[in-house]
Design a protein around this nucleic acid. Structure first.
Lengths: 346, 346
DNA sequence: ATCATTAAAGTTAACGTTAACTTTAATAAT
DNA sequence: ATTATTAAAGTTAACGTTAACTTTAATGAT
């Protein structure tokens, strides 16, 4: 246990006060250039490493930002995570990563715990079902930005993709290329993306004068296996009609495509399958699938930027008007436009 | 800025000392049951949240563990990350995630910074080229576990898959099913997995009396695009011979498969393509590919367990023999066995 | 009744750093 | 020559918590 070098050690060795060392480190004008150089070089020589915990205890502001997603192995979130990590690293923040597994209870417990490490802010793709976790953030005045999903429009700060438009674009494309029978494999109800993509789906139908058929929409389709099963169900239901499928995600789309291919159907010739997300990996080696492209890395990167910005603004406001309580809502609403990403071999 | 409730506030409200509150929280026997109940309920009522930074400043031991991989969007690492996060969460640790992008310089800078947050330990899949980062960990006596790759056998603690065996199994399978012309698309040289998988490849060849042909091995094949290009090169090189390809990863394998399919070759009938990693996602919807299965979640989970264990052991030893410097090497070498994961439609 | 024991507190100091203030000595202004 | 100014330090206290030690008062043994 070789004791860590502290500012005190350096101060004693040079016969100056600890504050002088601190000032030299933080480029305080009090210190003469000669001193600064002397101190800096000794710090380097002795391999001084600042104690972040002590520093934070005084300033009460950390460089920890936690990122909560439902599942980091989902390639969609993996990209979002990378965007977040890239921007936060660049700004000197550390990314604490957590999976909530779409469970609002786990989310709540997690956030409760996070409060004790003086978290600087939270980036979260909230689980559906309950906003207990988010409420906790609000109550404790922790800056947060919702990524990809929102709780209530016009409340909170969020960075989203335009999900309604994504649903609309996908459905429109399928109607125009493959006719009126467009099935929709949707995600969990109670999540904004699920609702909005469905709204887009309905808008496209209406615009083309096609009646909305409830039996064409399957919900709770979340992964490849679900997509596979849903394709089976829908294939039976369609009974020979030429149809197409819009899936909530590319992940689901690959599952659906697998089932159809194994049953001798060609994609997209016999059944067109479209995903939403535009996971490059999938379009790359499953060229039959089309998708609606969402800027995943950018969603992560932008939301990190927004959060850092909010944190900085609050810090400034605090200095300027020490008596004015910071408004917990900063009203930053960024919405990315989805784009059609047609399959190369359609 | 509603000031955070501290132990001091609670103490004043009850007219007791701060230490009494601390003792009540930490279940110290000094406190009478009645007091404890009184304090606990007030803490709950006022929604007291402990200040982790202050706590840590005294005890000099944090609950932060950083996990460094090359790229969190790689589905292989995504699974490893999930294993790590699951185990660390369960043990009360926070996972700080970083990508080194296979750049040893970035890795070094990262680790240097990490030292200042009193990191409890590091889980790392080290970049090749330089072990400056690892050296820094050694010098500062930070517990660390290498995941998936090692620097020097018998040095460091690591949790690996048996890469030599993975290479051997894959090659053997391909030789026996598809003949002597087995190409190998390998990763970056200078990384243990690259070396070991090649050794396995060579052992399988030797065992079957097949000469090693250097031109069959392509290096620096790291992603889908590389795999695609490598397939083009190799296809030309083979000039009509029936051959098969062992790829460093499933990721690469999908790229190779794509090229071959687009050129009218059936997989695995015309050219067998095999990956290593056993990424479920790929085998699921690209049923033509075989793979060598490596337990990714388990690699992450196990290495997290090992690290937590090392940290606990050191803490205990410190208490027992305060004068004895803890040995930086604990010699934990765990090696998982890979298994053949044959394609469903072979 | 006296002294040892113990349960249940309280006091003090420390972890490493920095903000706010004070001191010192040199320089400049009159 | 005296005072004001300033550059370059130093001093003190505080962030919130806990470890180590001390006090207090009640209980028990003799």
């Amino acid at each position: 246990m070789p004791k860590r070098i502290t500012m005190k050690d350096i101060a004693q060795e040079l016969g100056v006060s600890v504050t002088t060392i601190s000032k030299a480190i933080n480029n305080h004008p009090d210190i003469s250039p000669a001193r600064r150089r002397q101190i800096q070089s000794l710090l380097a020589e002795r391999n001084y490493i600042p104690n972040y915990m002590a520093k934070n205890l005084r300033s009460a502001r950390t460089k920890f930002i936690s990122l909560i997603v439902s599942d980091n192995t989902n390639p969609y979130f993996a990209k979002v995570i990378k965007g977040v990590e890239t921007v936060l690293s660049r700004n000197g923040y550390y990314t604490l990563i957590f999976n909530n597994n779409e469970d609002p209870e786990k989310e709540f417990t997690l956030i409760r715990e996070l409060l004790s490490i003086n978290i600087a802010g939270v980036l979260i793709c909230p689980a559906g079902g309950s906003d207990k976790g988010i409420s906790l953030l609000r109550e404790n005045n922790i800056p947060y930005v919702l990524i990809t999903r929102y709780i209530e429009r016009d409340c909170d700060n969020y960075v989203l993709a335009d999900d309604e438009k994504a649903g609309y674009l996908g459905t429109k494309h399928l109607i125009e290329k493959h006719g009126e029978h467009v099935a929709f494999f949707n995600h969990l109800p109670g999540i904004s993306t699920t609702r909005d993509r469905l709204l887009g789906y309905q808008r496209a139908l209406k615009e083309h004068g096609i009646p909305f058929r409830e039996e064409y929409v399957l919900s709770n389709i979340c992964n490849q296996e679900d997509g596979c099963n849903a394709a089976r169900t829908m294939y039976g239901l369609m009974g020979g009609k030429h149809f197409s499928i819009l899936c909530y995600s590319d992940f689901v789309a690959t599952g659906a495509a697998l089932y159809l291919q194994e049953n001798g159907l060609a994609i997209p010739k016999d059944v067109a399958v479209m995903g939403i997300d535009g996971v490059e990996m999938f379009s790359y080696f499953y060229p039959g699938l089309s998708s609606i492209h969402l800027p995943k890395f950018e969603l992560g990167a932008k939301s990190a930027e927004v959060l850092v910005d909010i944190i900085n603004r609050r810090a400034q406001e605090e200095e300027e008007y020490p008596e004015l309580p910071a408004d917990p809502l900063e009203d930053v609403h960024i919405i990315f436009e989805p784009t059609l990403q047609e399959s190369g071999t359609t």
